[in-house]
Amino acid sequence: TEYKLVVVGAGGVGKSALTIQLIQNHFVDEYDPTIEDSYRKQVVIDGETCLLDILDTAGQEEYSAMRDQYMRTGEGFLCVFAINNTKSFEDIHQYREQIKRVKDSDDVPMVLVGNKCDLAARTVESRQAQDLARSYGIPYIETSAKTRQGVEDAFYTLVREIRQH
């Protein structure tokens, strides 16, 4: 089974770092803004072998026109913010609204991801993020692309959301 996953969120929150940590098991430290990259990885989730087709997208506003296209083809979405960047957390709402509009559905598989949880300088409390996820009816997972904490959990949870859909 193949799953088309799309990673969305503001610029600099760590979308590529999360994806590369999942696929290649290493942490990319330097920031190089993405336009669009796709990665494929075969994994076993709950005993089922599946192929993850992951689209890593641009957070930069100037590429926002490309969003409709990949939102149409994606089956599930990782909505990523950084726990030390309140603005990126506030941006999640717009991504969710755009996904709902493009998919013409209120019920699209999504996982809210709070990345950079290895950093002490948190400005978005776990509780705020949990409340937001609960209001959307989606899971919330904290990750660190640096330490790998929660990385597999985030992507695998999204696959489970798609399966249950």
Results as ranks from 00 to 15, higher is better:
E2R: 02
E2C: 03
Y3T: 13
Y3W: 06
K4I: 02
L5I: 15
V6I: 13
V7S: 03
G9V: 00
G12C: 12
G12H: 12
V13P: 05
S16Y: 00
A17C: 05
L18D: 00
T19P: 03
T19K: 02
Q21F: 08
L22T: 14
I23N: 15
I23E: 01
Q24N: 13
Q24P: 01
N25R: 12
N25Y: 06
F27P: 01
F27V: 03
E36S: 02
S38E: 03
R40I: 07
V44N: 14
G47M: 07
C50M: 07
L51G: 07
L51H: 09
D53F: 00
I54N: 02
I54F: 07
D56V: 01
A58F: 02
G59Y: 03
Q60T: 15
Q60K: 15
E61Q: 14
E61H: 15
E62H: 15
S64Q: 08
A65K: 15
M66T: 12
M66E: 11
R67H: 15
Y70F: 14
M71C: 06
G74C: 12
G76W: 00
C79M: 14
F81T: 04
A82K: 11
N84R: 06
K87C: 06
K87A: 12
S88Y: 04
F89E: 03
E90A: 11
E90C: 07
D91K: 15
D91T: 12
I92N: 03
H93F: 12
H93Q: 15
H93S: 14
Q94S: 13
Y95C: 15
Y95I: 15
Y95P: 00
E97C: 06
I99Q: 02
K100R: 14
R101D: 05
R101S: 08
V102P: 03
V102Y: 13
K103Y: 08
K103P: 03
K103R: 10
K103M: 12
D104C: 13
D106H: 13
D106Q: 14
D107Q: 11
V108C: 06
V108W: 07
P109E: 02
P109G: 03
M110V: 05
M110G: 01
M110T: 03
V111M: 05
V111I: 12
V113E: 02
N115I: 03
K116R: 15
C117H: 08
D118Q: 03
R122Q: 12
T123C: 11
T123G: 12
V124M: 09
E125T: 11
E125R: 06
S126P: 07
Q128V: 09
Q130L: 11
D131A: 09
S135F: 11
S135D: 11
G137R: 05
P139Q: 09
Y140G: 01
E142Y: 02
T143S: 08
S144W: 03
T147G: 13
Q149T: 09
G150I: 10
V151I: 14
F155R: 00
T157D: 06
T157L: 11
V159R: 04
R160H: 07
R160E: 14
E161N: 09
I162Q: 03
R163D: 10
R163A: 08
R163K: 12
